[in-house]
Nucleic acid binder design. Structure first.
Lengths: 224, 224
DNA sequence: CGCCGAGTTGACAATGATCAAGACCTGTGG
DNA sequence: CCACAGGTCTTGATCATTGTCAACTCGGCG
């Protein structure tokens, strides 16, 4: 999952399920904290997240971390480049994944339907990453957090009592590493949104949208 | 072109030329400042840069700009998503481009060889963008500029008198919008590198690498 | 020669990072 | 069921990096 402009829905979730019957590999399960693959690993499978959340990470030698994307249900993770993974993939919760053999995609012997869907997913991935660049390069801390909440809501938000609410299945540190901020800054922005009654926090890992319009304005910088 | 870690060569340039004979469309020429396409345009062609440089841009309503990537000779630009372009594409110099019909790629009627190369290019694009995330999210201004010079050198650098030298075909503002900085900061970092004898500036648009090792150390943060 | 845009440099401000302390969950064991 | 321990989260104080605003220089071109 990447963060997009408020007015652009993230549509990875709209993808039709991959045709599992054509290449039935058993579902993989992963406990929170476990790694599915690491940067540099040879790619033999790609995975569609069925349930739970994963993160795609890159590390710098000195420990700085950037989360490239979160993998939510419906997302495809593990795009190869020259046969290798270019990120770590870590489970943030109990995760279920549907694996697909890479051989079914990258050569002429594979399934054309699967290959076409894979191509489509890769192009969506590129478009989503392009949106995310704008955020990392040009948006303020408040804009980033607001954009993140809106994007997450578009993917996994629920209606309850006429209010949108969204779970944050990841830690503040994960959010910070995704947005290019520190945990302290993420925490401060959330507190500020809470104090200004734009959101409410229902426990640490659930956000209720009190004034969605204000949040949208914040995300796009229209509040000035 | 994206900026990668210093130790990872940008390899888009290694791609075999696309088989132009299979779908011979005439080369497109574009003057500096002209737009090849804009965000939202329907995608009918994708293009391989033959000569010159283009930039792929995204804009925020308030004018903030992020350059997603520079398109250097060999690079493929115009990846579609749901049939639309998701960035503007602007020529930064006189540019020559080889167009390809999108119909040859996205459906079963297309050329399999071309489609495979397109797939490969898309996956390389994803990997390159992942590298760039680390820079925008986690690197300091000096690290970004140093990384940028090294990445550009890997693509278009020349040897002369035993020294590497690289042209900067874009303005300081373009570099800033690519790196998520301001023109002033880019200028200051370049001045500082010049004063510390890491680089020399041979005119505004040419950099000579005096101490490449120091530049590499700077790019990866090893200088501390 | 003078103009004009791009680039550079300086002074200052602001945003977000860092460092530190305290509060709050959550799981474990008595 | 409660107490404790360890991590996560929040909040405050301070600092550093980078952005902003402004002045000035440089280089190309009429």
């Amino acid at each position: 999952m990447y963060v997009t402009n408020a007015n652009q829905a993230v549509d990875m979730a709209d993808f039709a399920q991959f045709p599992t019957e054509t290449c039935a590999l058993p579902e993989t399960r992963l406990a929170a904290g476990a790694h599915l693959f690491r940067e540099g690993d040879a790619v033999t499978r790609i995975y569609q997240v069925v349930a739970g959340v994963v993160s795609l990470n890159r590390l710098l030698e000195d420990g700085r971390r950037q989360i490239i994307a979160f993998g939510l249900p419906g997302d495809l993770v593990g795009f190869p480049c020259d046969g290798r993974h270019h990120t770590d993939c870590e489970a943030l919760s109990l995760v279920r994944l549907q694996p697909f053999r890479i051989t079914q995609i990258d050569c002429a012997t594979g399934d054309p339907v699967l290959r076409a869907r894979f191509m489509e997913a890769a192009l969506h991935e590129i478009a989503a990453m392009q949106d995310h660049f704008m955020m990392l390069g040009r948006k303020s801390a408040a804009e980033r957090v607001a954009s993140f909440l809106i994007a997450l809501d578009a993917r996994t938000g629920q209606d309850r009592d006429g209010q949108r609410r969204v779970d944050l299945p990841m830690s503040r540190a994960d959010i910070a590493d995704f947005l290019g901020l520190t945990t302290e800054t993420v925490s401060r922005v959330l507190s500020q949104l809470r104090k200004s009654r734009v959101i409410a926090l229902d426990g640490i890992h659930r956000v209720v949208f009190l004034r969605p319009a204000a949040l949208r304005a914040l995300a796009t910088g229209d509040c000035d």
